[in-house]
Design a binder for these strands. Structure first.
Length: 796
DNA sequence: CCCGCTTACGTTTTT
DNA sequence: CGTAAGCGGG
């Protein structure tokens, strides 16, 4: 946030003036010559040290359009950071450089690495005063900055709020309700899907109307129109709008576009294969004049077509920019040859991809393990057993990952981890900022900043309960709709609503007074004081802490939120509230991977793993119907994307890769037998080590590893229990968790679990107990396996 | 207002 | 089969 474009109007002479202006050929040659001699002089320069030829070329090519096809593990981030450092070392002011990424995490990493290389290369510490870093951010965060500054030029209010998907859904609900479309007929989610698809392809409401050939599409276009109208009335922008409105701003106000073109003379876009139509337009506009556009990506890692990413943006870059320099980074610094060969086998089968073959000098790797197991339970046990084995031979848990196609698959692995007492973290669960209590507090802050944010008003009007119920709200909303007045304005003049009785009117006035009081406070106070006052004057604490354990958790979440607000206290009062809300709106899931303090196995979907690397990767569920997913099997392009998804997963592996598939799997209550994934057939045999449970000579045909009766614990099954390894693994753990508790454990007892905390035993059948933990979650655990101990034998 | 039962649904997801 | 959301009863 610090390095904004307050320098927009600055025009101090600099090298970049020379480098960036389109100029005569002669001038151009001079620049290039200077560059070469400069490079020669500083060959020991840390900016170029350790780079391979292609990377060097990319780092040296500063002018004009540049396409970097960077394969997995080819040192992509390294190349961008060194290129940016090179620009700066040659005199381009940092504020003229823009780097666009897809996630906050990537933006942050880029920032840190640029700072580091600048420190080494030119001994300047950009974090200290005087120094400056290039702007690096996500498409959305950059658009928010632009809009906060200039959106009034296209007739909208600067204080807009950003709607997340929850808000979108609520808004769509009300749109459909107004149009008298029942949820059974059209679900809000489906409607949002259509609208968002239009918006990510930059189709306007009018265009959608015109193009609508059928009644269904006509009506969908009307829904789109009404949805946009409501957004505008609420002074809100959804995520798609952030991009769309910026494009509209640039198109309708060329002078504003020019100002930004003057600012950002050197543009970098990472993960270019994942850009959608609007993002493409945005970049085209910004780069149109100076054409110093560097895009980096890998068509083989395009896995987001389903949400509007258009792979053509990267494939056709050279058609779009005829003079583009194109560089391929094919040397892989991450994986062994075995991993690369396997991955290449899979991806090479995709048609119409640019010729690209990754290579490495890490020839002596382990073979890729391909393992068939009997069912999903056994799959989880085998996967965890493998993880434990590698942990023993020195691969820390945090260097290992299990990847699956769908979130629903995670449960088996989570349970297997719990049974084994293995620390794990799952990515992609409930997001902190999506929790109800957190959203409630945020809604107060949004409403304070912008009382026309009707959605936030509705969210908090009866939280905590003010006895303003549904009937009253329906009256109010009807009143608003009929007269086209915002809810806030109606509530401010509640006396004009005849239908309501005096009691309700008084309660509404009290609420209005409360908000206005808070609003006054917000003019002089920083966000943390405002938030604290919200909690105190609404009595939210008492409301949230309802004497249940869940209530305590909710309260802790609110305290956590309060501690986040404190980070914004250094800013001037109004700015503090605004910056906080802005960052919160655009934040992604709390970055669990950055928490490296605990050594834990990571579990996540294949989609989430892009950009990461692990020493050991286990990809499970490599079966027809799962990977490729059944919903993608009939469509050629979707099938290709599924293949890329597997490719992305495989190329995360540095040292060891394991692929698993189960010969039968219980899905939605029925047992399926899935053929192994067609993608596996494309892996060269010579890098594979194939293992199958099904024909294991020691055991013969294995039985289903699920116990046939609850009383037969896993330990009695014919399957060699991976869990016995547990004691070796748990050397460093608290022995009291390994008490022999089999016999006495019974319903009603209070137990402690090594990872899940404390809870009560709800029931016991055989060696399986069901425990309700104080955290609110209920888990089934295997006695003698789960790391539990008895705390009390009675309920008291 | 909350709990418990019924019902519907079941790719992938950042911002 | 499991979960989440919605609805109806206490």
């Amino acid at each position: 946030m610090a390095e904004s474009y307050h320098c927009v109007s600055s025009s101090s002479p600099s090298i970049s003036e020379d480098v960036s202006r389109t100029s005569s050929e002669k001038e151009k040659q001079t620049v290039e010559k200077n560059q070469r001699s400069y490079n020669a002089a500083v060959n020991s320069d840390p900016i170029f040290a350790g780079l391979n030829e292609e990377q060097k070329q990319a780092v040296e090519t500063l002018k004009g359009p540049l396409l970097i096809l960077a394969g997995a593990g080819s040192g992509k981030t390294r190349t961008i950071t060194h290129r940016i450092a090179n620009l700066i070392s040659q005199g381009v002011p940092a504020w003229q450089i823009l780097a666009v990424t897809f996630t906050n995490k990537a933006a942050k990493e880029l920032k840190e690495r640029i700072a580091r290389i600048l420190q080494i290369a030119i001994g300047h510490d950009p974090t200290k005063s005087g120094g400056q870093l290039p702007l690096s951010g996500t498409f959305h965060s950059i658009c928010v900055r632009i809009l906060r500054r200039d959106i009034e030029a296209i007739g909208r209010n600067k204080t807009f709020v950003i709607y997340d998907s929850d808000d979108q859904e609520k808004l769509m609900q009300s749109v459909l309700k107004d149009m008298k479309i029942a949820p059974e007929e059209l679900k809000p989610k489906t409607a949002i899907g259509h609208v968002s698809a239009w918006k990510s392809e930059a189709v306007s409401v009018d265009q959608a109307r015109k193009a609508a050939a059928t009644y269904t599409y006509q009506r969908m276009a009307e829904i789109y129109g009404n949805y946009q109208k409501k957004l505008r009335e609420a002074n809100a922008l959804d995520f798609d709008d952030l991009l769309l409105e910026t494009v509209r701003l640039f198109t309708e106000c060329p002078q504003i576009l020019e100002r930004y073109q003057n600012t950002w003379r050197f543009i970098h876009v990472d993960e270019y294969q994942d850009t959608n139509r609007v993002q493409y337009q945005l970049i085209s506009l910004l780069a149109k004049r100076d054409r110093n556009l560097c895009v980096i990506g890998d068509p083989d890692q395009s896995i987001y077509a389903f949400r509007g990413a258009d792979i053509r943006n990267i494939l056709e870059f050279k058609t779009e920019y005829k003079d583009a320099v194109s560089i391929k980074l094919e040397r892989n610094y991450r994986s062994t040859q075995q991993v690369l060969d396997a991955a290449d086998g899979v991806i090479a089968a995709n048609p119409s991809r640019p010729e690209k073959k990754m290579w490495t000098d890490r020839k002596n790797g382990m073979k890729v393990k391909l393992e068939e197991v009997i069912d999903e339970r056994r799959e989880a046990e085998e996967a965890i057993r493998g993880v434990l084995e590698r942990k023993k031979t020195g691969t820390a848990l945090k260097d290992q990952v299990i990847l699956y196609r769908t979130n629903a698959q995670s449960r088996q692995f989570e349970e297997a981890c719990l049974r084994a007492g293995l620390p794990y973290r799952i990515l992609g669960g409930m997001k902190f900022y999506a929790r109800r209590e957190v959203k409630d507090v945020l809604a107060y802050l949004y409403a304070i900043l912008n009382p026309n944010d009707t959605l936030s008003l509705l969210r908090i009007i009866n939280v905590p309960s003010r006895k303003i119920g549904n009937t009253t709200l329906t009256h109010l909303q009807n009143f608003c709709n009929q007269r086209n007045i915002s809810l806030w304005n109606v509530m401010k003049h509640i006396e004009m609503v005849d239908e309501l009785n005096d009691g309700v009117k008084n309660r509404i006035s009290a609420f209005v007074d409360l908000l206005q009081e808070l609003k006054t406070l917000s003019e002089t106070a920083v966000v943390s004081s405002i938030a604290e006052r919200v909690i105190v004057s609404t009595g939210l604490e008492k409301w949230v802490r309802d004497q249940t354990d869940e209530g305590e958790t909710r309260w802790e979440n609110i305290l956590e939120l309060l501690s986040v607000t404190k980070k914004y206290d250094a800013l001037p009062p109004q700015e503090s509230l605004m910056s906080f809300l802005e960052e919160v709106a655009l934040i992604s899931e709390v970055d669990k991977l950055n928490d490296q303090t605990t050594d834990a196995l990571t579990l996540m979907t294949l989609h989430l793993c892009k950009g990461l690397e692990f020493s050991s990767v286990t990809i499970v569920g490599c079966e027809e119907g799962i990977l490729p997913h059944s919903a993608s099997q009939l469509d050629q392009s979707q099938l290709e994307e599924e293949r890329r998804l597997l490719y992305v997963g495989m190329t995360r592996a540095k040292d060891f890769l394991s692929l698993m598939h189960a010969s039968s799997r219980t899905l939605w209550g029925s047992v399926q037998s899935n053929a192994r994934s067609r993608f596996l057939d494309d892996i060269p045999q010579n890098v594979l080590e194939v293992k199958s449970d099904m024909l294991d000579s020691k055991f013969g045909w294995l039985q289903d590893s699920r116990p046939s009766r609850p009383s037969e614990g896993y330990r009695k099954s014919t399957v060699k229990p991976f869990i016995q390894q547990n004691d070796d693994f748990n050397q460093d753990t608290d022995d009291s968790f390994l008490e022999h508790v089999e016999e006495e454990l019974a319903e009603g007892m209070r137990i402690g679990h090594k990872m899940l905390g404390e809870g009560f035993v709800m029931s016991r059948s055989g060696d399986i107990i069901e425990v309700r933990f104080d955290s609110g979650q209920t888990k089934r655990l295997a006695i003698g396996i789960a790391p539990i101990r008895i705390l009390a034998t009675t309920n008291s």
